[in-house]
Nucleic acid binder design. Structure first.
Lengths: 205, 205
DNA sequence: TAAAATTAAACAAACGTTTGATTAATTCAA
DNA sequence: TTGAATTAATCAAACGTTTGTTTAATTTTA
């Protein structure tokens, strides 16, 4: 069971880890930010590593979103499904930038092996759903014969690229450093529109 | 001037930081791996932070590759230039996975501000070259009216996605965990081919 | 009052960095 | 050309902090 206090600590940790990285954040930093005693983190989670695992487990389902629902829907065409997944995925990631960030930090550092594996599993499950749809589209000859795996890399990679660094994103978009693209609705629509364009011209004839 | 020994330490550091992250790597780890005394890192570089800065400066030009040369070439069409940049960029990144990795770790962690800025600058310079070509193509009506900034995000993001995690990459590609996609020539061609396909159908009519 | 939550204090280990001594190589005066 | 002086490189040891974690005492809750 997740108590209010545990949740409070996890949310503070997500923000802190996103800013300073897991190794770069100390438990004392975290305790100060969450306004709890240093001992509480170990009391509730056992260790700093286990706190990270708890965070991933706590938030992982969140990333999944409506994937299953969309895949199972029989009244939509493949391209409609992909459009909907794009909208969903962009919305999910843009509204959880910190969590998305720490997942990718962990992937990029890639030390703690079991943690790395867990995160890969979360992504792969999402990715597989998407791949099934693409392959079905190819089979039905609605889609061109593309490289399904790398098509997914393109879709997810574009979003990740934008999420990589606020500073870089703003420089790319000719915005000043204070602008927060992740909460800007117009930017979300711009990204969604671009992704649909890319994927459509790539998949459709 | 960069002596052999400095270079030796920097190369060892690139590998170590890529594996364990900057914060996750201790100077003692590094000294052991490079087979030098712990004091040598501070002797040669001043501090752990300055070692990182030295690495970025030392390797930054490497990323740039033949960008200028390609941009200045007047006997190529815009799409030919982009194809060449794709080939170049993929080759560069795949042959320096560790350096690419630590740059992105730093972008994702994003604490040390001046370092963050420096790295963003390196990328932005490369990106601007590409954007100029895309915008020229649009002006000449060779290219469709696309979103130039996000088109670059797609190009670079796809490569980054593949570089993010060897484990993830292999799971995506149905390879076992021991396979190293980054040194595999067939994989490089597959990635290059996919990128060209995506960009062509996105840019051309 | 018994269990759970919270605290300040303490723990050993690891951290980046500095030190002062020692060695090896180079320069310079006679 | 020799021997002293200077410089650079290397080392083991120690520096003061900070780290994650634990303890033991205290407060709060039910």
């Amino acid at each position: 069971m997740i108590t209010d206090k545990k949740e409070h600590i996890m949310n503070a940790a997500i923000e802190l880890f996103a800013e300073k990285g897991f190794e770069g954040s100390s438990i004392r930093d975290l305790a100060a930010r969450a306004d709890v005693n240093v001992a509480m983190v170990n009391y509730y989670f056992g260790s700093k590593d286990k706190l990270f695992e708890a965070i991933v487990e706590y938030k992982a389902s969140f990333l999944r979103g409506k994937m299953d629902e969309i895949e199972a829907n029989t009244s939509m065409t493949e391209i409609e499904k992909i459009d909907l997944i794009i909208e969903n995925y962009v919305a999910k990631i843009l509204s959880n930038p910190s969590f998305h960030r720490i997942l990718h930090q962990e992937l990029l550092v890639g030390d703690r092996e079991s943690m790395h594996e867990n995160i890969v599993k979360v992504f792969v499950r999402n990715i597989t759903t998407l791949r099934n749809i693409i392959e079905l589209g190819i089979k039905k000859k609605i889609f061109k014969k593309v490289d399904p795996e790398l098509t997914m890399a393109t879709l997810i990679g574009t979003i990740n690229q934008v999420m990589l660094s606020k500073a870089m994103c703003n420089m790319l978009m000719h915005r000043d450093g204070n602008f927060d693209p992740y909460t800007d609705l117009a930017f979300r629509e711009r990204l969604t529109k671009h992704l649909k364009q890319v994927i459509h011209s790539h998949l459709l004839n």
